[in-house]
């Protein structure tokens, strides 16, 4: 009987834990980072009304990252019109340059949302090692594709996947 009670309690606990999870908006880890206004932003709040999301980790000291984001920015109007995709660029600049990110982004005239992860909390939770590291999330908030490094023309490949995701195709095999 003791054993049954133990099993019961354990399952009740896990049942509770998992049911807590039902209302979550995406499948990303819950990490408090900052937006460019210095306000706390929880990564569970990343959402795009059932449309695809691109999350790209970058930093001011990472030239290929900035090239990648420039390439996205050049295409962003078209991409949004066609698929409704949203881009979120997560800067992992530490206290050395977090205050420089906002004026840099303004100077670049990037149209997408930029978040700050100054101590790499979100980076670690997402198992990001080298940057640029880009994730594509489907409408259900699940990661369906990821890629590290940027070479000229990668944006075409990224967008092909976004198009598939937007039309409901299963692309998780690319992960």
């Amino acid at each position: 009987m003791k054993r049954i009670v133990l099993v019961f309690c354990t399952l009740l606990f896990f049942g509770y834990v998992t049911s807590q999870n039902l209302n979550k908006r995406n499948n990303l880890p819950s990490v408090n980072i900052k937006n460019l206004e210095g306000e706390t932003f929880n990564t569970k709040e990343i959402s795009n009304d059932g449309k695809p999301i691109i999350i790209s980790f970058w930093a001011l000291w990472c030239k290929p990252c900035k090239k990648e984001l420039d390439a996205y920015n050049d295409n962003y109007d078209d991409w949004q019109e066609e698929t409704g995709v949203e881009i979120i660029a997560v800067s992992i600049d530490d206290a050395r340059s977090t205050a420089k990110v906002l004026p840099y982004v303004s100077g670049k005239d990037w149209d997408f949302e930029v978040l700050l992860d100054p101590n790499g909390d979100f980076k670690r939770a997402m198992s990001v090692n080298m940057i640029p590291h880009t994730f594509i999330l489907n409408g259900a908030g699940e990661i369906v594709y990821q890629h590290t490094s940027y070479y000229e023309g990668l944006e075409d490949e990224i967008y092909e996947i976004v198009e598939k995701v937007a039309s409901g195709e299963n692309v998780s095999g690319n992960n």
């Binding site: 205050a99 420089k100 906002l102 004026p103 982004v105 303004s106 100077g107 005239d109």
Partner: peptide, 15 residues
């Protein structure tokens, strides 16, 4: 101490 001014296409920063 950091201060910045940001507008579309221009960012100024001092620290």
């Amino acid at each position: 101490f950091s201060g910045s001014y940001s507008t579309k296409g221009l960012g100024i920063y001092a620290q």
